[in-house]
Amino acid sequence: MAVKTVWHITHSCGHQAERDLSDRAADRRAGFAEWLAKQECTDCWRATKEGNEQDKAAWLKAKRAQEQAESEAWSQQYRMPPLEGTERAIAWGVRCRHQLLAAAYTALVLEGDTSETEWEEIEETARTITRAGWWIDQRSSEPDDLTELLQAATEAARPTENPHF
Rank of each mutant, 00 (worst) to 15 (best):
R95W: 01
W92D: 14
R139I: 05
W92T: 11
L108K: 06
C96D: 07
A91W: 00
A132S: 12
S140I: 02
R97G: 01
E118F: 01
S140W: 02
I122R: 10
I90F: 01
E111R: 11
E118M: 13
W92S: 11
G112E: 09
Y105T: 00
L108M: 07
T117W: 07
L100S: 03
T128M: 15
R127K: 15
L101P: 01
R127C: 12
S141M: 06
A89Q: 12
Y105S: 02
L108T: 01
S115Q: 08
W135V: 07
R139G: 00
A132C: 07
L108P: 00
G93Y: 00
Y105L: 05
A126P: 05
T117L: 13
L108E: 01
W92A: 15
R127S: 10
T117N: 10
W135Q: 05
G112C: 08
W134G: 00
A103M: 06
G93M: 07
L101N: 02
T128R: 15
T106R: 14
R127N: 06
T114A: 08
I129V: 14
V109L: 05
A132Q: 05
A107L: 03
W119Q: 07
I129E: 11
A89L: 08
W134F: 13
A104Y: 05
A126S: 11
L101K: 11
G93N: 04
T125C: 06
G93I: 04
A102V: 13
A91V: 11
E124Y: 03
C96Y: 03
V109I: 05
E123I: 00
E116P: 00
E116H: 15
E120H: 09
T117A: 13
E111P: 00
